[in-house]
Amino acid sequence: MNSSTDPAPARQAEFREILAALLARQPLSPAMAGAAFGSIMDGAVGEILLAAFLTALHMRGESVTELHAAVRAMRARMVAVPGMPADAVDVCGTGGDGLGTLNVSTAVAFVLAALGVPVVKHGNRALSSRSGATDVLLELDVPLPVDTPHIHRMMDSHGVTFLAATNHHPAMRHVGAVRRGLGFRTIFNLVGPLCNPAGVTRQLVGVFSPRWLEVMATTLREAGSRCVWAVSGACGEGRFIDEVTLAGPTHIRALEGGEIRTLALDPAATGLACAPISAIAGGTPAHNARALRHLAEGARGAYRDTVLLNVAVALHVAGRGDTIIRGGGIDYAALRGNIAVAAEVLDRGAVLAVLEAVRKFRADEPNRVTG
């Protein structure tokens, strides 16, 4: 095909102009941002140009316009999973906090399932950390069904299913290698949690910086979400983790009833022992998988307590357990009640039973992750 009929050269030329504007630290218009992310998702941008673009965005700081354009481009190309329970919840984080902790939200998914809360957990391999949700699940030999009938069967059988991002966002194959090569968080860390393929309307979403909490909650409200808590936990020295934390106050934007309110959660009032972020330091996927299994088997400590705290919040987001907002702030008595509920299912082995049952689930095709 010659260049007069091939759209690729024209798109590449347009992308270079957009990149030049970005390098000049100019704001990208909605049209420019839309064209840039459309070209990226269609594979029309080479790795060198893509690396330059993502690096320039990271150094300048991503804008709301650019995030919205990336989300629209990704959602337009994703493989959706219709028909999931209307009250299903997702618990996930952006990653990109650079802290390398144990996998909290993956453990939370198993505890919620043991409590009878339907969970559609969206996750990915590690791209800017050592161990992502998908990495840990593969280590645990938890199946990651690809097609919709098997995803439904897993949900029907166990009340939880796991969606590997690369199976449902094929356009991301065009950026995965560059993201891994760069090794730092990019705008796609923010995009992933905003694009659950099942279209869940209830989410506990962790964010690597409080700066993005309002944007995340607002974007999900515009997408039709009912209840969202976007959280970013302070861990000292200007660092933040994409979870509710015991290391310091957690900053929150809570979307409820169509309104977004600002909250803060004090770990000292939860009844759990405060702990530095180093107490839940993680490692390889195998290391993190062992920790998750030991947690399900009854191990005590900061990892268990962090998971319990996140489950307590997720129960509220899911519309289960006690409502933990009262008078414009956190109702810590109700929060402690939810923590006790979560601890009980761990203590009686229900979480381990879910983990073992899920591991034995087998679809008619091999457990695999594309990309």
Rank of each mutant, 00 (worst) to 15 (best):
G183N: 01
A107W: 00
H169K: 07
L138Y: 13
R130D: 10
A177Y: 05
H168W: 07
R211F: 11
G83H: 00
N167C: 10
I151T: 07
L213A: 06
G96C: 03
A80K: 13
T186L: 12
A126T: 09
G199E: 09
V108K: 00
N167T: 04
P82L: 12
M74E: 02
Q203A: 01
R75A: 08
T201D: 14
T101A: 09
G98Y: 05
A86C: 08
T201R: 15
A107L: 05
L163E: 11
M172R: 03
G159V: 02
D141E: 13
G116P: 04
W212Q: 03
T101S: 07
A76I: 01
P143G: 00
A70Q: 04
D141M: 15
R72L: 11
T161S: 08
F188Q: 13
R173N: 14
V191K: 08
N124D: 12
P82N: 14
D97M: 13
H150E: 15
L137A: 02
V81H: 10
V81S: 09
V79A: 06
V136H: 07
S209A: 11
L137W: 00
G93D: 05
D87L: 06
A88W: 01
V200C: 09
L140K: 04
G159W: 07
V175H: 05
T94M: 03
L144N: 06
L144C: 08
L144Q: 01
A114E: 03
T186K: 13
A76S: 03
R211Q: 10
T186R: 10
P149L: 08
A126S: 15
H174W: 01
A69G: 13
A133P: 06
G192A: 15
T101R: 00
T148P: 13
V136Q: 10
N196W: 05
N167I: 08
R77I: 02
